[in-house]
Design a protein around this nucleic acid. Structure first.
Length: 949
DNA sequence: TCGCTCACG
DNA sequence: GACGTACGTGAGCGAA
């Protein structure tokens, strides 16, 4: 059987009006406005990219309005009469829309005296009669009348700006009636934009209510005389004729002659040459680059040969040149200014203040913001309009030891800071940074509280989390973003400062080189900001960015500066104890093995166990090495291998010593005497934070010996630590999101959730059934497989499958949630949290089963884990203001560990602070989301982090 | 730089 | 019939 045909009909005219109003006013190299054209081009690009998708187009045509006149003007002269003329700078873009369509080699339909809507209706129904699916690319509510299914052939709509598909349920949700009754609703309510009269005083709400109640427009009008006396009754009686006229006006004409045959709309792929020429002409270089690179190019990739001379030649990036955006010239490092006098600095500050938008970047002597020294600041106000202000540079290779070495001319750092402070703190000036949390913390040490801020790294994350499958910084590092979006290769830090022993600090870099590097960073940040902020409203990233992630930046910055005290003496004592034990175990293991070897080497250990000592069941992984992980060693221990237990103990102690007791001592900051982690807001694809240098989110707790380390996390004298945890938050969210009444009730009544699960599944609660239920509950959150569960529970796969079946039978909502989530991710390419955070899964439709199934499991988990992350982030944003409002300014928020917040506070504040903290955390989803389950909070306090649990 | 192992939620 | 076996992280180590 042939694959199903799928026709996409693009409502081009309507699109450009919308694009015009929502896009910035770009111009092409000739000065012609092209903002709407650019939007239109990217929209076509996106559609063409879906060509090979299961639900993508097989056929596509663009429908344009040729003239504004149609049969409607004949029956109603006022039709569209009050339309204002199109804006001046949109007019020259109309012909360019046609050029763009031709550049994509797409069929274009524009018939005189026929409105685009009617043409779309005619084509849509014709295609549906042939059994084709149809997608109308538009957001016009009139066209929603066409939505529906006929003999298995669907007509739906796609709003590419909001990225939403509209089918019957969406129409019903919006208008309260199914699509076939929509015309009646529209006739009643009228339309100001088209000057369709409708009934005066009847809007969408009343109209859909009346139609839903009476079943049709005629029925509403017929029922009017019998209504009880009211304004509405009068208006219905008076307006009957107008309503009937309106009904005719909103009816789509579906029998227009079809100028192009359906089969001629077949989409075979996009020939690159005409497209490249068009993109070049209008300066759409970022698209041009993608076309040249092949990656992300529209249409079937086989038709877009990157080696085609025209295309490759048209791609400046192929020659290592810089890559501008529309209206953005190539990066020109020679344009940057090195600011060495107060006079020039004042000049830049004045310009930045006037511009109200400035990209800021700080250069420092080290990588961690808490101990690094400020060496210089760069600013950018536009493409190539950037400067570097050196503040603590030494002469080249000066090293600082030669007190007679002359320093380069530069503004005094303190004076410069005083001059910059009003700009960086001004509410009227937006400061843009790439990972600006770093700069916030550097400048905080110079008494500057940078605000308000935008962060290109986080914007990129909120737009594209998960889209890049690898790469440092999760694909949101500046060099990567510059390559991807600007086609520009940044100077690399290591090219400026070198690596390894020969590395110099930034303060030793000669000023000309330093200016090129530092000002480029600010310049590129400014450009990325222009590009990303433009994408955000169209790609649904504004909500999560504005409401959750951006407000979190100063909060997390503050937590990092707070740090937490660790008891160095206690850690040193533990290190020594561990060292003694490790030495003893090492001796015993070597003796058992009959020779000394490196126990920490899985390779050597495997050989000793499975070859020399002859234990059975050694399994080699793909690297050809024996596996010696926990499960293997535990099995050997059970089979009586004494050495296995010793190795396990050795491993545990080495881990604790090297990763924790030794490393944490090193991490104590000499200036503050505390440990300052660095949180990444883009570290985890689901929206969780991650913690590095040191990682304070994986301090041991599960074993008694590991918990010794938590005892070393302490408050200052007179204070206590307070730990507040969300209890079972992910299961609670699963109960809400999957709408499982049984689980929701259990949470509402404060029942033990695993016991409840056991009761539902096995009828009785014992230690065993509860433990099994707990495992299954977690398995569900992670996307279950019978083999995975079997492995965890130590049962056969068949038995595990039976348990999964029982679970789904008892909680059918869960199974529905999983199916629905996967369908949605397959279709849209991303999952979404309750707060609108997207995570992309580019491999969800992979042909490689393992890859695909991995993505499926991650996709099931992401909305739950991500929603949990959103909630605690919202709590963090509100926490300090809430505490301050409650008269508790001395409570300090120190750490976040995914579902836990750690505070340090005076003992006397504990009772009052606990209440506030609990309230803020419990209500963190509100008012945006009202959960069907309560969020339980557990609070503990004590003289150490361990004691607070 | 990679794979292995193991610490956390 | 093989695939490879629970989600999300970061750090230290040994081997190359």
């Amino acid at each position: 059987m042939a694959d199903k045909q799928h026709l996409y009909l693009v409502d081009g005219s309507a699109y450009i009006f919308r694009a015009y109003h929502r896009l910035p006013p770009l111009t092409n190299p000739e000065g012609t406005p092209v903002g709407a054209v650019y939007g239109y081009t990217t929209m076509l690009w996106k559609l063409a990219q879906d060509l090979d998708d299961a639900d993508g187009p097989t056929h596509l045509a663009v429908v344009l309005d040729k003239s504004s006149k149609s049969f409607r003007n004949e029956i109603y002269s006022e039709y569209k009469a009050n339309r204002p003329p199109p804006p001046e700078d949109l007019v020259p873009q109309f012909p360019l829309i046609r050029d763009a369509t031709r550049a994509f080699s797409l069929p274009m339909i524009e018939e005189p005296d026929v409105e685009a809507d009617d043409m779309i209706a005619s084509y849509a129904l014709a295609a549906q009669r042939e059994g084709w699916d149809v997608t109308i690319v538009s957001s016009d509510k009139d066209l929603m009348q066409l939505v529906g299914e006929e003999n298995g052939a669907r007509i739906d709509m796609l709003d590419t700006m909001k990225d939403v598909r509209v089918f019957i349920p969406e129409v019903e949700e919006k208008f309260g009636v199914p699509p076939q009754l929509l015309g009646d609703v529209l006739a009643l309510m009228g339309d100001t934009a088209d000057n369709i009269p409708g009934i005066f005083g009847v809007g969408p709400k009343t109209a859909s209510k009346l139609i839903a109640e009476n079943g049709s427009l005629t029925a509403v009008l017929d029922a009017a005389p019998d209504m009880k006396k009211s304004k509405l009754k009068e208006r219905l009686l008076e307006g009957r004729e107008m309503a009937e006229l309106s009904r005719v006006l909103v009816e789509l004409k579906s029998d227009c002659p079809l100028p192009i045959a359906l089969d001629d709309m077949k989409l075979e792929g996009i020939p690159p040459e005409p497209l490249a020429e068009f993109l070049e002409t209008h300066g759409f270089h970022s698209l041009l680059k993608r076309l040249g690179a092949g990656a992300g190019s529209p249409g079937r990739k086989t038709n877009l040969d990157p080696a085609t001379p025209d295309t490759a030649g048209a791609d400046p990036a192929a020659h290592g040149d810089s890559q501008p955006l529309p209206e953005m010239p190539a990066v020109d490092r020679s344009a940057y200014e090195c600011v060495q006098t107060m006079e020039r600095l004042e000049h830049w500050i004045a310009r930045a203040t006037a511009a109200r938008l400035v990209a800021v970047d700080t250069e420092t002597s080290a990588l961690d913001a808490i101990s690094a020294d400020l060496v210089g600041v760069s600013l950018a106000l536009g493409p190539n309009d950037a400067c570097y202000i050196p503040l603590a540079h030494l002469n080249e290779g000066g090293g600082g030891s030669d007190m007679f070495a002359q320093k380069p001319e530069q503004v005094d750092r303190k004076t410069a800071m005083q001059a910059l402070k009003p700009l960086l703190e001004s509410d009227a000036v937006m400061k843009i940074g790439q990972n600006i949390k770093y700069d916030i913390n550097i400048l905080a040490r110079h008494d500057i509280m940078v605000s308000p801020v935008d962060d290109t790294m986080i914007m990129s994350f909120d737009l594209d989390a998960g889209r890049s499958q690898d790469g440092i910084g999760g694909g949101h590092g500046m060099d990567e973003l510059a390559e991807r979006h600007l086609g520009h290769t940044c100077l690399k830090f290591k090219d400026i400062c070198g690596t390894g022993k020969k590395a110099i600090s930034f303060g030793e870099v000669p000023l000309d080189r330093a200016t090129e590097y530092a000002a480029e960073d600010a310049d590129v940040t400014w450009r990325l900001h222009a590009l990303l902020s433009h994408r955000m409203p169209f790609e649904g990233a504004v909500r999560i960015y504005q409401r959750v992630d951006r407000p979190l930046i100063p909060v997390v910055a503050h937590m990092e500066r707070e740090g937490i005290k660790v008891d160095r003496t206690e850690l040193a004592r533990l290190s020594e104890t561990f060292a003694g034990e490790i030495g003893r175990l090492e001796g015993e293991i070597h003796e058992a093995a009959g020779e000394p070897f490196t126990i920490g080497s899985p390779k050597q250990l495997g050989e000793v166990l499975f070859e020399k000592m002859g234990y059975k069941g050694g399994k080699k992984g793909k690297s050809g090495q024996y596996s010696t992980d926990l499960s293997v060693l535990e099995r050997l221990a059970n089979e009586g291998a004494g050495i296995a237990n010793k190795v396990l103990e050795y491993r545990q102690l080495s881990k604790l010593k090297s990763t924790y007791t030794d490393a944490l001592q090193e991490a104590i900051n000499t200036r503050t005497g505390r440990v300052h982690t660095s949180y990444s807001l883009v570290g985890a694809q689901t929206g969780r934070l991650s913690s590095t240098d040191p990682n304070l989110q994986n301090i041991p707790i599960r074993t008694e010996i590991g918990r010794q380390i938590r005892k070393a996390f302490v408050p200052e004298d007179g204070n206590v630590l307070l730990a507040a945890d969300y209890s079972q938050i992910e299961l609670r969210l699963a109960a809400h999101m999957a709408d499982v009444d049984t689980l929701k009730e259990a949470f509402a009544s404060g029942e033990d959730i695993h016991s409840r699960t056991a009761k539902e599944m096995y009828g009785e609660v014992t230690r065993d059934t509860r433990a099994q239920a707990k495992t299954i509950n977690f398995a569900i959150l992670y996307g279950i497989s019978r083999w995975g569960l079997a492995g965890r529970l130590g049962v056969e796969a068949d038995e595990a499958q039976a348990m999964i079946d029982t679970y789904f039978q008892r909680f059918p909502g869960i199974q529905k949630y999983i199916v629905r989530t996967l369908e949605e991710v397959r279709e849209k390419g991303y999952s979404e949290t309750l707060f609108g955070r997207k995570t992309w899964f580019p491999r969800i439709n992979s042909k490689n089963q393992a890859e695909r199934q991995g993505s499926e499991r991650a996709a099931i988990n992401a909305p739950i884990q991500g929603t949990s992350a959103d909630i605690i982030k919202r709590a963090m944003v509100r926490m300090l203001p809430a505490l301050a409002d409650a008269g508790l300014p001395d409570v300090r928020m120190l750490l976040q560990v995914h579902d836990e917040l750690v505070f340090e506070l005076p003992q006397s504040d504990v009772a009052a602070a606990s209440e506030v903290i609990k309230q803020v955390m419990a209500d963190a989803a509100l008012p945006a989301v009202r959960l069907d389950v309560p969020l339980g909070i557990e609070i503990g306090t004590g003289p150490s982090w361990d004691a607070a649990h």
